[in-house]
C-alpha cells in the first residue's frame, strides 16, 4: 500500500496498522457467487446453516464481481469457461484473493484431456489450494482459515 514510503519507518505504528488492516480484511471477505461444478454444491452447503460461513465474515455471496473480495473457483474449469472466469477475476477490485477449491481447479485432478484447464493457476494467481473431490464443507472452511492466516501475514508495503 506504500503508506510507509510516504511516512518513513514508523515501526510500531505500521505494524499495528498492518494488524488492523489484516483484521478488517479477513473479517469481511465476501466471496463471489460462482460455481462451476460439483464443488459448488459443497460450497453452498458450507454457506448454509450447518456450517455457516457467515461466522467468518462471509455474510453473503455477492453476485457482482465488483462487490467481492474472494473468488472461490469451485469445480473444473473448461477451456471455454476460462476466459469468462478470468474476466470475472479482472473485474474484482483489489485486494482480491483466489481459492482453488477441489482437485480439478487445483491441478486438473482426474481429468487429463483437451477440454479441461489443468489447474486454474494457468489463468490467474491462486492463494490457497484445497484438496478433496469435492472437499467437505469443513475442508473449505479450513482453506478459508488458511487464507486468513496468509492475509494476516501480508505486509503493507
Amino acid at each position: 500500500m506504500g503508506i510507509e514510503t510516504k511516512l518513513g519507518n514508523l515501526g510500531a505504528v505500521t505494524t499495528s496498522l498492518q494488524k488492523a488492516v489484516g483484521w478488517s480484511r479477513t473479517r469481511a471477505m465476501w466471496p463471489l457467487l460462482t460455481g462451476l461444478a460439483c464443488c459448488a454444491i459443497e460450497m453452498m452447503a458450507s454457506q448454509a446453516a450447518d456450517y455457516d460461513m457467515s461466522r467468518f465474515g462471509m455474510e453473503l455471496m455477492r453476485a457482482s464481481p465488483r462487490q467481492s473480495d474472494l473468488l472461490i473457483v469451485a469445480g473444473r474449469v473448461s477451456r471455454k469457461m476460462a476466459p469468462v472466469l478470468r474476466r470475472l477475476y479482472d473485474q474484482m477490485p483489489e485486494p482480491k484473493w483466489v481459492i482453488a477449491m477441489g482437485d480439478c481447479c487445483s491441478c486438473g485432478g482426474v481429468f487429463n484431456n483437451y477440454a479441461i484447464v489443468p489447474g486454474v493457476d494457468e489463468i490467474m494467481p491462486v492463494d490457497v489450494y484445497i484438496a478433496g473431490c469435492p472437499p467437505r464443507p469443513e475442508g473449505l472452511i479450513h482453506g478459508i482459515l488458511t487464507l486468513h492466516d496468509k492475509v494476516m501475514a501480508e505486509k503493507l508495503a
Binding site: S106, C107, G119, D121, D127, V128, Y129, I130, A131, G132, P135, R136, E138, G139, H142, G143, T146, K150
Partner: peptide, 12 residues
C-alpha cells in the same frame, strides 16, 4: 483427516 489446504502446489 480432511484438512488439506495448501498455499503452494508443491506442499500438496
Amino acid at each position: 483427516n480432511y484438512e488439506l489446504s495448501f498455499t503452494n502446489r508443491r506442499d500438496a
